[in-house]
């Protein structure tokens, strides 16, 4: 379970990216964060994996106060969270396979098992043919799927995706959503930041709308 209590984030003095946000996301949930660009969606995700710290308030993930984790504890939180970065953050010098393997190497898993698991997830995202390619040889949609595969390969408890369908064609959007839905079925809590209202509406999931750093409305999934 993820809880935010009255969280505020202020970047350099005046830029208030989030103010007084309280939110509860139960385990196994699939929730969209929406809002115009600049509303604070990415900031909220960054708080969850502790790339930034809140100026005020508490963030609690599975009864752990994220801002109280020490530097040596932080990696163990991050291992339970898969992240799809808005700019992918794929390493240009490594192949698709190596990029995806990073998440498993960090866990100290043996080489053979890594090979098997990476092949499996790449097949799932439809990239088994591109395993030896470097990211710069891939299309935007393919890079997006590599990033998704890297985030999902260690079967994290939580998946955070920042605009995972930005700039993609409808076919790719649908593919990504189906992969996310599948992970959700296997028990992963999924939080997707997206400004694409059409996509959010079509997905029939819970949606939290941010506006200038505040929660404007929480839209529960229609039954």
């Amino acid at each position: 379970m993820i809880q935010l209590h009255n969280v505020s984030v202020t970047y350099q003095q005046d830029v208030c990216a989030l103010s007084g946000v309280s939110l509860m996301i139960p385990r196994g949930d699939f929730v969209f964060l929406t809002g115009a660009s600049g509303a604070g969606k990415s900031t909220l995700l960054k708080l969850l994996y502790a790339e930034i710290a809140p100026s005020h308030g508490q963030i609690i993930i599975d009864n752990q106060n994220v801002s109280r984790l020490t530097r040596s504890e932080l990696p163990y939180l991050r291992r339970t969270i898969g992240i799809v970065f808005q700019d992918f953050r794929l390493l240009p010098n490594r192949t698709v396979m190596e990029n995806v393997a990073i998440t498993l190497e960090v866990l100290g898993i043996g080489r053979k098992e890594i090979g098997e698991r990476v092949s499996r997830i790449l097949k799932q995202v439809g990239l088994e043919q591109r395993m030896q390619a470097t990211p710069c040889r891939l299309s935007g949609g393919e890079q997006q799927r590599v990033a998704l595969a890297r985030a999902l390969v260690n079967e994290p408890k939580i998946l955070l995706a920042d605009e995972p369908t930005g700039n993609l064609d409808d076919e790719n959007k649908a593919l990504i959503l189906s992969i996310l839905a599948e992970a959700n079925c296997r028990g992963t809590t999924i939080i997707v930041a997206s400004h694409d209202l059409r996509l959010v509406a079509a997905s029939n999931k819970r949606a939290v709308t941010l506006e200038r750093g505040e929660i404007r409305e929480v839209h529960d999934e229609p039954r």
Partner: peptide, 12 residues
Amino acid sequence: EEVELLELVGAT
């Protein structure tokens, strides 16, 4: 960027 990424995926 490699170092940053490794930090974010939970490398010690």
